[in-house]
């Protein structure tokens, strides 16, 4: 499984926010999409999940594009939004049922998996509740459960750690690691740089709609010419450099 983004130009209006973005997310790899507010992280993600249409360039999952084969494209992907989105009138159980239906999963197996996920995030006793009335953190957990239930080939995760308690953050990171071992690809946008440094294999640093630099952590250190630098140092250094020059 590979997600290939090639020369992507796009945004919400005629004026592009993203200017010529290219990177890849391969199976068994966690890619961190790093950038300031407004750098273009969410816009990139919106293009990947198909809410926006590229003005130029292409986004391909295993040879399938959204234009030519939307069902194949979408069936390979699970998404966790930055702000939880829930159906007002569905219970937690029905959210899970719906996810199983929509992805055409095996009912028995998927429910077994759902139960272990629900237990991990301490939601087992809330199956008959309307999650739309949950707190932000609990809604986010529902999003996580529904996404990881699908055993997708590609996970697209937007700012996953906001509002999660430390226990849930740890469990989410473990989940990402185990999915990675299974062979899934993960594209994750975040500001939490210390966590990203530890858990991502590859980094894409966005600034003002362009890729400032990309590579593994070692490669980033080489670019920054400091082998002791943390991701925060590199990120701040590179963006400030850009700001000063610009």
């Amino acid at each position: 499984m590979t997600l290939k983004i090639n020369g992507l130009v796009g945004g919400y209006s005629q004026v592009p926010v993203l200017k010529n973005i290219s990177f890849e997310v391969r199976a068994g790899e966690v890619v961190g999409l790093i950038g300031l507010n407004g750098a273009g992280k969410s816009t990139t993600i919106n293009h990947v999940i198909g809410l926006l249409t590229p003005q130029k360039g292409s986004i391909i999952i295993d040879g399938a594009t959204l234009m030519k084969d939307p069902e194949t494209y979408k069936s390979k992907m699970a998404y966790i939004p930055e702000i939880p989105v829930l159906y007002q009138e569905l219970t937690l159980r029905e959210h899970i049922d719906l996810t199983i239906m929509a992805y055409g999963l095996n009912k028995g197996k998927a429910w077994l998996r759902a139960e272990s996920l629900l237990k991990m995030f301490r939601l087992s006793n809330k199956l008959e509740w309307f999650p739309a009335n949950f707190s932000k953190g609990m809604k986010q957990k529902v999003m996580i459960v529904c996404a990881f239930l699908t055993e997708a080939e590609l996970y697209v995760i937007d700012e996953p750690f906001l509002g999660l308690d430390p226990l849930a953050t740890r469990d989410l990171l473990n989940l990402i690691q185990s999915e990675k071992k299974r062979g899934a690809a993960v594209l994750m946008s975040t500001h939490v740089l210390s966590t990203a440094q530890e858990h991502c294999d590859y980094f894409v640093l966005l600034h003002e709609g362009k890729i400032k630099t990309q590579g593994t952590f070692e490669e980033l250190r080489n670019v920054y010419q400091n082998q002791q630098a943390t991701l925060t140092d590199i990120y701040l250094g590179l963006t400030q450099e850009v700001t000063n020059h610009g």
Binding site: G50, E71, K74, M77, Y79, V85, Y103
Partner: peptide, 14 residues
């Protein structure tokens, strides 16, 4: 009614 819910667009549906 479901247009506002992102997942309606993301699920692999016909």
């Amino acid at each position: 009614d479901y247009d506002d819910i992102i997942f309606t667009h993301i699920y692999p549906l016909k």
